[in-house]
Simulated scan of single mutants.
Amino acid sequence: MTDLLSPSDIWADITAVRERAPLVHSITNFVVMNLNANVLLAAGASPVMAHAHEEVQAMAGIAQSLVLNIGTLEPYWIESMRLALQTATQRGIPTVLDPVGAGATAYRNESIELLLGTAAPTVIRGNGSEIMSVAGANVQTKGVDSSAASNDALGAARALVARTGGVVCVSGPTDHIVDGKRWALLGNGHEWMTRITGVGCSATALIGAFCAVQPDAWRATVSAMALMGVVGEVAAEKAVVRRQGVGSMQVIMLDELQLLDQATLEQRLKMEFKPW
Protein backbone atom coordinates (compact mmCIF):
# COMPACT_ATOMS: atom_id res chain seq x y z
CA MET A 1 0.00 0.00 0.00
CA THR A 2 1.04 3.61 -0.40
CA ASP A 3 3.33 4.71 2.39
CA LEU A 4 1.49 6.79 4.95
CA LEU A 5 4.62 8.23 6.50
CA SER A 6 8.13 8.76 5.17
CA PRO A 7 11.48 8.68 6.97
CA SER A 8 11.77 12.41 6.33
CA ASP A 9 8.46 12.92 8.13
CA ILE A 10 9.83 11.08 11.13
CA TRP A 11 13.01 13.14 11.03
CA ALA A 12 10.91 16.30 10.95
CA ASP A 13 9.21 15.19 14.17
CA ILE A 14 12.56 14.38 15.82
CA THR A 15 13.79 17.83 14.85
CA ALA A 16 10.63 19.44 16.21
CA VAL A 17 11.18 17.84 19.63
CA ARG A 18 14.81 19.00 19.64
CA GLU A 19 13.93 22.54 18.63
CA ARG A 20 10.76 23.11 20.66
CA ALA A 21 11.73 21.28 23.88
CA PRO A 22 8.15 20.46 24.95
CA LEU A 23 7.37 20.25 28.65
CA VAL A 24 6.29 16.68 29.39
CA HIS A 25 4.55 16.09 32.72
CA SER A 26 5.26 12.53 33.82
CA ILE A 27 3.65 10.71 36.70
CA THR A 28 5.69 7.57 36.46
CA ASN A 29 7.20 4.89 38.66
CA PHE A 30 10.15 4.91 41.05
CA VAL A 31 12.12 2.33 39.07
CA VAL A 32 12.27 4.30 35.82
CA MET A 33 11.96 7.94 36.86
CA ASN A 34 15.61 8.84 36.37
CA LEU A 35 16.01 7.06 33.03
CA ASN A 36 12.73 8.49 31.70
CA ALA A 37 13.84 12.02 32.55
CA ASN A 38 17.26 11.51 30.97
CA VAL A 39 15.74 10.00 27.82
CA LEU A 40 13.46 13.00 27.43
CA LEU A 41 16.33 15.41 28.00
CA ALA A 42 18.60 13.59 25.54
CA ALA A 43 15.87 13.68 22.89
CA GLY A 44 15.47 17.42 23.43
CA ALA A 45 12.31 17.52 25.56
CA SER A 46 11.87 19.00 29.02
CA PRO A 47 10.66 16.55 31.69
CA VAL A 48 8.88 17.36 34.93
CA MET A 49 8.09 14.63 37.46
CA ALA A 50 5.36 15.85 39.79
CA HIS A 51 2.78 13.83 41.69
CA ALA A 52 1.79 15.84 44.78
CA HIS A 53 -1.97 16.40 44.91
CA GLU A 54 -1.33 20.03 45.83
CA GLU A 55 0.39 20.81 42.51
CA VAL A 56 -0.41 18.07 40.03
CA GLN A 57 -3.29 19.94 38.40
CA ALA A 58 -1.27 23.14 38.15
CA MET A 59 1.60 21.25 36.55
CA ALA A 60 -0.72 19.57 34.06
CA GLY A 61 -2.04 23.05 33.39
CA ILE A 62 1.29 24.28 32.00
CA ALA A 63 2.64 21.12 30.34
CA GLN A 64 2.37 20.32 26.63
CA SER A 65 1.59 16.63 27.30
CA LEU A 66 0.92 14.23 30.16
CA VAL A 67 2.38 10.73 30.59
CA LEU A 68 0.93 8.28 33.12
CA ASN A 69 2.76 5.09 34.12
CA ILE A 70 1.38 2.71 36.77
CA GLY A 71 4.53 0.66 37.31
CA THR A 72 4.80 1.19 41.09
CA LEU A 73 1.22 2.14 41.78
CA GLU A 74 -0.41 3.03 45.08
CA PRO A 75 -3.67 4.87 45.90
CA TYR A 76 -2.02 8.28 46.34
CA TRP A 77 -0.30 8.11 42.95
CA ILE A 78 -3.39 6.83 41.17
CA GLU A 79 -5.36 9.79 42.52
CA SER A 80 -2.57 12.08 41.30
CA MET A 81 -2.94 10.53 37.85
CA ARG A 82 -6.71 10.93 37.91
CA LEU A 83 -6.48 14.62 38.86
CA ALA A 84 -3.82 15.32 36.23
CA LEU A 85 -5.74 13.40 33.57
CA GLN A 86 -8.85 15.47 34.26
CA THR A 87 -6.91 18.72 33.85
CA ALA A 88 -5.03 17.59 30.75
CA THR A 89 -8.25 16.42 29.10
CA GLN A 90 -9.99 19.70 29.90
CA ARG A 91 -7.07 21.59 28.35
CA GLY A 92 -6.99 19.35 25.29
CA ILE A 93 -3.33 18.38 25.58
CA PRO A 94 -2.29 14.83 24.59
CA THR A 95 -2.24 12.13 27.26
CA VAL A 96 -0.31 8.85 27.14
CA LEU A 97 -0.98 5.83 29.36
CA ASP A 98 1.45 2.99 30.04
CA PRO A 99 -0.50 0.17 31.78
CA VAL A 100 2.59 -1.50 33.23
CA GLY A 101 1.87 -4.99 34.50
CA ALA A 102 -1.78 -4.98 33.47
CA GLY A 103 -3.23 -8.40 34.21
CA ALA A 104 -0.78 -9.17 37.02
CA THR A 105 -3.09 -8.22 39.91
CA ALA A 106 -6.69 -7.20 40.44
CA TYR A 107 -5.63 -3.84 41.91
CA ARG A 108 -3.58 -3.03 38.83
CA ASN A 109 -6.57 -3.78 36.59
CA GLU A 110 -8.92 -1.74 38.79
CA SER A 111 -6.55 1.24 38.66
CA ILE A 112 -6.39 1.11 34.88
CA GLU A 113 -10.18 1.01 34.67
CA LEU A 114 -10.40 4.00 36.98
CA LEU A 115 -8.12 5.99 34.70
CA LEU A 116 -9.90 4.89 31.53
CA GLY A 117 -13.18 5.84 33.17
CA THR A 118 -11.82 9.30 33.96
CA ALA A 119 -10.90 10.10 30.36
CA ALA A 120 -9.77 8.28 27.24
CA PRO A 121 -6.00 8.63 26.73
CA THR A 122 -4.71 9.92 23.43
CA VAL A 123 -2.27 6.99 23.26
CA ILE A 124 -1.95 3.69 25.12
CA ARG A 125 1.42 1.91 24.84
CA GLY A 126 2.16 -1.49 26.29
CA ASN A 127 3.53 -4.92 25.56
CA GLY A 128 1.37 -7.68 24.13
CA SER A 129 -0.05 -9.08 27.35
CA GLU A 130 -0.64 -5.62 28.83
CA ILE A 131 -2.67 -4.51 25.83
CA MET A 132 -4.61 -7.75 25.83
CA SER A 133 -5.40 -7.40 29.52
CA VAL A 134 -6.54 -3.78 29.21
CA ALA A 135 -8.82 -4.83 26.36
CA GLY A 136 -10.39 -7.49 28.56
CA ALA A 137 -8.64 -10.63 27.38
CA ASN A 138 -7.95 -13.32 29.97
CA VAL A 139 -4.16 -13.16 30.00
CA GLN A 140 -1.66 -13.27 32.85
CA THR A 141 1.50 -11.18 32.73
CA LYS A 142 4.83 -12.26 34.20
CA GLY A 143 5.03 -9.43 36.73
CA VAL A 144 5.65 -6.49 34.40
CA ASP A 145 6.98 -8.60 31.51
CA SER A 146 4.90 -9.73 28.57
CA SER A 147 3.66 -13.29 28.27
CA ALA A 148 2.27 -12.65 24.78
CA ALA A 149 3.85 -11.60 21.50
CA SER A 150 2.96 -8.21 20.05
CA ASN A 151 1.37 -9.95 17.04
CA ASP A 152 -1.02 -11.78 19.37
CA ALA A 153 -2.42 -8.50 20.69
CA LEU A 154 -3.61 -6.97 17.42
CA GLY A 155 -7.25 -7.84 18.02
CA ALA A 156 -7.03 -6.38 21.51
CA ALA A 157 -5.38 -3.25 20.14
CA ARG A 158 -8.23 -2.76 17.69
CA ALA A 159 -10.75 -3.23 20.50
CA LEU A 160 -8.98 -0.58 22.57
CA VAL A 161 -8.94 1.81 19.61
CA ALA A 162 -12.69 1.34 19.28
CA ARG A 163 -13.15 2.00 23.00
CA THR A 164 -10.93 5.07 23.34
CA GLY A 165 -10.98 6.56 19.87
CA GLY A 166 -7.23 7.01 20.22
CA VAL A 167 -3.97 5.34 19.26
CA VAL A 168 -2.68 2.02 20.58
CA CYS A 169 0.95 0.92 20.38
CA VAL A 170 1.83 -2.72 21.02
CA SER A 171 5.57 -2.98 21.57
CA GLY A 172 7.74 -6.02 21.01
CA PRO A 173 10.26 -7.33 18.45
CA THR A 174 7.83 -5.77 15.98
CA ASP A 175 6.02 -2.66 17.18
CA HIS A 176 2.45 -2.20 15.96
CA ILE A 177 0.89 1.26 16.00
CA VAL A 178 -2.80 1.48 15.12
CA ASP A 179 -5.63 3.95 15.15
CA GLY A 180 -9.06 3.75 13.57
CA LYS A 181 -7.73 3.66 10.01
CA ARG A 182 -3.94 3.17 9.95
CA TRP A 183 -1.53 0.39 10.92
CA ALA A 184 2.25 0.81 11.03
CA LEU A 185 4.84 -1.86 11.80
CA LEU A 186 8.36 -1.08 13.02
CA GLY A 187 11.12 -3.67 13.05
CA ASN A 188 14.06 -1.89 14.66
CA GLY A 189 15.52 -2.50 18.09
CA HIS A 190 17.67 -5.13 19.80
CA GLU A 191 17.00 -7.90 22.31
CA TRP A 192 19.32 -6.23 24.82
CA MET A 193 16.78 -3.44 25.21
CA THR A 194 14.72 -5.89 27.29
CA ARG A 195 17.63 -6.22 29.75
CA ILE A 196 17.59 -2.53 30.70
CA THR A 197 14.79 -1.62 33.06
CA GLY A 198 12.70 1.30 31.93
CA VAL A 199 13.33 1.21 28.18
CA GLY A 200 9.66 0.53 27.42
CA CYS A 201 8.57 3.17 29.91
CA SER A 202 11.00 5.59 28.31
CA ALA A 203 9.45 4.88 24.92
CA THR A 204 6.11 5.89 26.42
CA ALA A 205 7.65 9.11 27.72
CA LEU A 206 9.05 9.80 24.25
CA ILE A 207 5.58 9.35 22.77
CA GLY A 208 4.41 12.08 25.12
CA ALA A 209 7.13 14.41 23.84
CA PHE A 210 6.34 13.69 20.20
CA CYS A 211 2.59 14.12 20.72
CA ALA A 212 3.34 17.56 22.17
CA VAL A 213 4.86 18.74 18.88
CA GLN A 214 2.97 16.62 16.33
CA PRO A 215 -0.85 16.94 16.40
CA ASP A 216 -1.36 13.63 14.57
CA ALA A 217 -1.03 11.25 17.52
CA TRP A 218 -0.60 8.19 15.31
CA ARG A 219 2.26 9.79 13.41
CA ALA A 220 3.78 11.06 16.67
CA THR A 221 3.68 7.56 18.14
CA VAL A 222 5.26 6.02 15.05
CA SER A 223 8.02 8.64 15.10
CA ALA A 224 8.78 8.16 18.79
CA MET A 225 8.90 4.37 18.53
CA ALA A 226 11.01 4.56 15.36
CA LEU A 227 13.53 6.77 17.14
CA MET A 228 13.70 4.47 20.16
CA GLY A 229 14.09 1.38 18.00
CA VAL A 230 16.88 2.78 15.84
CA VAL A 231 18.70 4.22 18.85
CA GLY A 232 18.53 0.89 20.69
CA GLU A 233 19.82 -0.95 17.65
CA VAL A 234 22.76 1.41 17.15
CA ALA A 235 23.61 1.42 20.86
CA ALA A 236 23.67 -2.38 21.10
CA GLU A 237 25.93 -2.68 18.06
CA LYS A 238 28.35 -0.10 19.43
CA ALA A 239 28.42 -1.83 22.82
CA VAL A 240 29.24 -5.17 21.19
CA VAL A 241 32.06 -3.65 19.13
CA ARG A 242 33.52 -2.18 22.33
CA ARG A 243 33.13 -5.51 24.17
CA GLN A 244 30.68 -3.88 26.56
CA GLY A 245 27.30 -4.97 27.88
CA VAL A 246 23.90 -3.58 28.71
CA GLY A 247 25.19 -1.16 31.34
CA SER A 248 27.24 0.69 28.76
CA MET A 249 24.46 0.29 26.21
CA GLN A 250 22.14 2.38 28.37
CA VAL A 251 24.62 5.26 28.31
CA ILE A 252 25.15 4.90 24.56
CA MET A 253 21.38 5.03 24.02
CA LEU A 254 21.28 8.44 25.69
CA ASP A 255 24.17 9.58 23.49
CA GLU A 256 22.39 8.39 20.36
CA LEU A 257 19.12 10.06 21.33
CA GLN A 258 21.03 13.32 21.41
CA LEU A 259 23.33 12.77 18.43
CA LEU A 260 21.45 10.56 15.94
CA ASP A 261 21.52 12.06 12.45
CA GLN A 262 19.03 11.89 9.62
CA ALA A 263 21.19 9.69 7.40
CA THR A 264 21.50 7.00 10.06
CA LEU A 265 17.78 7.07 10.78
CA GLU A 266 16.81 6.77 7.13
CA GLN A 267 19.39 4.06 6.42
CA ARG A 268 18.30 1.86 9.31
CA LEU A 269 14.56 2.47 9.60
CA LYS A 270 12.47 -0.68 9.13
CA MET A 271 8.91 0.54 8.65
CA GLU A 272 5.96 -0.78 6.74
CA PHE A 273 2.21 -0.26 6.59
CA LYS A 274 -0.64 -2.70 6.24
CA PRO A 275 -4.28 -2.19 5.32
CA TRP A 276 -6.49 -1.62 8.34
Score class of each variant (00 low, 15 high):
P22H: 09
W77L: 15
G155K: 01
A63F: 10
W183G: 04
A236Q: 12
G166W: 10
L5K: 00
V170K: 01
T174C: 04
P215Q: 04
E110D: 15
R125V: 04
E113M: 09
N188E: 08
Q244E: 14
V96C: 02
A157D: 05
T2L: 15
A162H: 11
V231H: 05
H53Q: 04
W11S: 06
R163N: 10
Q267W: 02
M1G: 14
R242M: 13
E19H: 13
N36R: 09
G155M: 04
W11E: 08
R219D: 05
P7D: 05
P99W: 07
D175N: 05
S202M: 00
E55D: 14
A88M: 02
V161E: 06
L66R: 01
M271F: 02
P22Q: 05
Q214N: 15
Q244D: 10
M271N: 13
A43W: 10
S171K: 07
L68A: 11
C211W: 04
Q267M: 13
G187T: 01
R163A: 13
V199T: 15
P47I: 08
H53A: 12
G92M: 04
V222R: 00
M1L: 12
A235V: 02
T141L: 10
F273W: 15
R243P: 00
V56I: 11
Y76W: 06
H51T: 06
L5R: 00
Q250A: 14
Q244F: 01
L83H: 09
I27H: 10
A203D: 11
I124P: 04
L259Y: 14
A209H: 05
L41P: 00
V167S: 03
G245L: 08
T204K: 08
S133T: 02
G200M: 09
A220P: 09
W77A: 13
A50V: 12
V199I: 15
N36T: 15
V230M: 03
N127I: 08
A52T: 08
V246F: 06
T2F: 11
S8M: 10
P47Q: 11
A37R: 09
I93F: 13
G172E: 07
A42K: 12
H176K: 03
V178T: 03
R158E: 05
A60L: 02
V251Q: 10
T141C: 13
L73P: 07
I124L: 08
G44E: 00
S150M: 06
M132Q: 06
S150I: 12
Q214S: 13
P215V: 11
A235R: 12
F273M: 15
G247A: 15
G128F: 09
V17I: 14
G166D: 03
W218D: 03
R163C: 00
H176N: 04
I112T: 11
A156D: 12
W77P: 05
S26G: 13
E74K: 10
E272P: 00
C211Y: 00
L97D: 04
V17G: 11
A60P: 09
G172W: 05
I177A: 05
V199W: 07
V17D: 07
A217K: 09
P99Y: 07
A149E: 14
R195C: 03
K142D: 12
V32E: 00
I62C: 14
A88T: 03
E113D: 14
M33W: 02
R108Q: 08
Q90W: 03
V100F: 07
G136V: 06
W77I: 15
N38W: 04
M59P: 00
L73I: 13
L68C: 12
C201R: 00
P275G: 15
K274G: 06
G136Q: 07
